[in-house]
Simulated assay, not measured.
Amino acid sequence: MAASAQDSPDLSAPPVPARRPRASAKGEQTRARLIAAARTLLSGGMSERFTTRNVAALCGVSHGMCHYHFQDRTDLVLAVVADIRPEWIHPLEEAVSAPGPFAERAERVVELLGRPEGAELSQLHSALHWHALNDSRVRESLEAEYRRWRACFVALFQVLAQERGGGVDPRPLGEAVAAAVDGLAAAESLGSEVDSGAVLRTLISTLAAGTRPGG
C-alpha cells in the first residue's frame, strides 16, 4: 500500500539536533568534590604533587573516575580557575556595576579591595600563577580572567568619563589602578604592612582630580 502524503517525512524541515543527556546529580556532585580536592592540594602549596591520581585519592574516588570528568590535570586546574571566579571577579564587577555616581562606586571598590584576601584564595592564586608559567592552556585561561578583572577598573573610570561629558580616557586610568592593586597584593603576600584602602582611595581620587578640565 502506497504511503500517503501525510505519512511521508518532510524533507524540507531542518533536522532536529539530538538532545544531549543531562549530567546526573551524582555526577555533578562527584565533579564538584574533585574540584574541591584540587583546590585543597593547590592551596596547600603542593603543586609538585598535583596529579589527577592524588586528587582522586584525596577525593576518595578511583583514578578512572577522575579522568571521566577531567581529561588531565590541566583540565582540573582550568576548573579551579573557573571555580574561584565568584570569589574575586564577580564581587568587583558587582561593586562597579551597581547604581550610583563615580565617587560612590569607587568607594565600594576601595572597601572591597581593602578587605584582606583569604589565605586559601591567596595560595590558590600563587599556585595558578606557577602552573601558568609551565602550561600554555593555564596561562591563556588565567590571562583571560585577569583581563576581565582589569576591565572592571576601566568600567569604573568610564562612569567618570560619562559624568565629565568626555575628555577622559578610562583605559589608562583603569589599568593604572589595576596595576597598583596587583602591587599591593604582592606586598601584602610578603607580609608588608600596607593600608591598601588608604592607598587605593588616594590613587583613585588623585587620578579622578587630574581629569578635570584645566586640571
Score class of each variant (00 low, 15 high):
Leu200Ala: 07
Arg201Leu: 06
Val159Ile: 11
Gln29Trp: 03
Glu143Arg: 08
Val110Ile: 14
Ala36Leu: 00
Gly197Phe: 13
Ile204His: 00
Glu175Tyr: 05
Asp72Thr: 00
Ala209Asp: 11
Gly215Met: 07
Leu156Pro: 03
Val96Cys: 04
Pro116Ala: 10
Ser12Lys: 06
Leu173Glu: 08
Arg53Val: 13
Arg115Val: 02
Met65Pro: 00
Gly64Val: 07
Gly118Asn: 07
Glu145Lys: 07
Leu58Asn: 06
Ala56Pro: 06
Val81Pro: 02
Ile35Leu: 13
Pro9Thr: 09
Ser47Pro: 04
Ala161Ile: 05
Ala3Gly: 02
Ala132Leu: 04
Leu207Val: 07
Ala119Cys: 01
Thr202Val: 09
Val168His: 05
Ala79Arg: 03
Gly165Tyr: 09
Gly114Asp: 13
Val199Gln: 08
Pro86Met: 12
Arg212Gly: 07
Arg171Tyr: 01
Asp10Ser: 04
Glu104Leu: 08
Ala38Gly: 15
Met1Cys: 01
Leu203Glu: 06
Val159Met: 04
Pro9Met: 08
Leu133Thr: 12
Ala18Gln: 10
Ala155Gln: 12
Leu128Ser: 11
Gly44Phe: 06
Val16Arg: 13
Ala3Phe: 14
Glu140Tyr: 08
Thr202His: 10
Arg212His: 09
Ala25Cys: 04
His63Asp: 02
Thr40His: 11
Ser47Gln: 14
Glu140Arg: 11
Ala36Asp: 15
Asp75Glu: 15
Ala209Pro: 03
Asp10Leu: 05
Ile35His: 02
Ala2Tyr: 11
Ser122Val: 00
Ala79Val: 02
Arg39Lys: 15
Leu42His: 03
Glu93Met: 14
Ser192Ala: 14
Ser196Asp: 05
Ser62Gln: 08
Leu92His: 03
Gly215Pro: 04
Arg137Gly: 01
Leu173Val: 07
Leu207Met: 13
Gly44Ala: 13
Arg49Gly: 01
Ser97Arg: 13
Glu104Phe: 01
Ala2Met: 12
Gly60Tyr: 11
Trp88Thr: 10
Ala187Glu: 13
Ala176Lys: 07
Phe50Cys: 00
Ala161Tyr: 04
Glu94Ala: 15
Gln6Val: 10
Ser4Asn: 04
His63Leu: 03
Trp88Phe: 15
Ala98Glu: 14
Leu121Gln: 14
Ala198Lys: 11
Ala208Phe: 07
Leu200Asp: 07
Cys59Asp: 10
Ile204Thr: 03
Arg201Ala: 12
Ala38Val: 02
Pro86Ser: 00
His63Val: 10
Gly215Lys: 03
Gly197Ala: 02
Glu140Trp: 06
Met1Ile: 10
Ala3Pro: 05
Gly60Phe: 13
Ser4Arg: 15
Leu92Glu: 05
Arg20Asn: 10
Ala187His: 12
Gly210Leu: 03
Glu163His: 10
Val168Asp: 03
Arg73Phe: 01
